[in-house]
Write a protein that binds this DNA or RNA. Structure first.
Lengths: 185, 185
DNA sequence: TATGGAACCATACAGTCGTATGGAAACCAT
DNA sequence: ATGGTTTCCATACGACTGTATGGTTCCATA
């Protein structure tokens, strides 16, 4: 029988996982379901990721890298309020893509509480973003402390925005962000 | 055979669920595990909660009620900055009990993204706390908007505090809270 | 003390999970 | 063309899961 294998890359699999997780939560992102979503067999997934934990870790790492890349593209030579706004805006669900991202990110963050491999990725991610924010704050007093608070606050905004009954619409998000930055620089 | 039944109340069951969830995450809080933790049989759990979903909903509601009760005890006649600080402090993991609470709360919040019953409870909780905060802000301009931002920010602080690599120690939490309130009133 | 309902238990069922196994198909260097 | 490696599939296994069933114990009330 002539058979044509699909181009089953790890990237395609993590993308399928994102789809499932965004729609039905991480719990629904089982090996079987992800395989079906990607149009491949269970074995194909197993070939690229030996265990489910590795699959999750790879997906989480890819997601984190995506956010990091966006932040890394921000021009740090821009004047302070603007560059801070730009960095922080990357963390907010201001469009459909970032809303999906924030949803999946929140799911991973929750699971990181009980998964050592995910916790490690999360810890690195938090530290890096905090450092980036500290840098974006320039030579202000207590930049590190301010960065930590700003980061947590924006993360909270993102979480409330994607929560049921969060009550934070898109334009309220940007207004809140501007208010935060205005009061914190 | 002489048998002695344990005092199996719904409260004892939800308490057992909190224990399991705080230690090993909500995923680990299966009907069997919760029953074992409470020292009763599966059937006893089934008797009080017809389904696992109902068990989760009852536990989440109880947790939410606890937070709400603490907030309700705050004296709203105190001067503005103090009463706002007091309300918001109740949301932060400033002691061991509230740390456990924040952990379990975060787990429920994550699950609310895919569980309609939990989502309903969460939506009500968010709305109520936001209203409480708005009231605590008194007759300030844009009190509602400020309340939403403050709430999200404090929730973010709580989340980062209990996250791996969150990097927010206890005294930093109170400092951040004071800074937030100072800049927002 | 008889009786009915509430509380609780032991067990079983079907379904899903992650993972292991053995082989087939595809590709690649020789 | 051939042998080896990578890629992928079909299937099976044991360990769970939530829930259903039928029975037992307890307790209040009559």
């Amino acid at each position: 029988m002539v058979r044509q294998y699909a181009a089953t890359s790890p990237e395609a699999l993590t993308e399928a996982l994102f789809d499932v997780a965004a729609e039905s939560g991480l719990d629904a992102a089982t090996v079987r379901v992800v395989a079906a979503r990607a149009g491949v067999s269970i074995g194909a997934v197993q070939h690229h990721f030996a265990t489910k934990d590795q699959m999750y870790a790879a997906a989480f790492a890819a997601l984190v890298a995506r956010v990091r890349a966006r932040i890394g593209r921000v021009d740090l030579t821009a004047p302070l309020p603007e560059r801070l706004l730009t960095v922080l805006a990357e963390l907010l669900p201001l469009d459909k893509a970032r809303t999906r991202e924030a949803r999946v990110m929140a799911a991973f963050a929750a699971r990181a509480a009980t998964s050592p491999s995910l916790a490690a990725i999360q810890a690195a991610q938090l530290a890096e973003i905090r450092a980036e924010l500290t840098e974006a704050l320039g030579d202000l007093d207590h930049a590190e402390q301010r960065a930590a608070v700003l980061f947590a606050a924006v993360d909270g905004l993102a979480l409330h925005a994607v929560s049921s009954g969060g009550g934070l619409k898109r334009h309220q998000l940007t207004a809140a962000l501007e208010e935060l930055v205005r009061r914190f620089v």
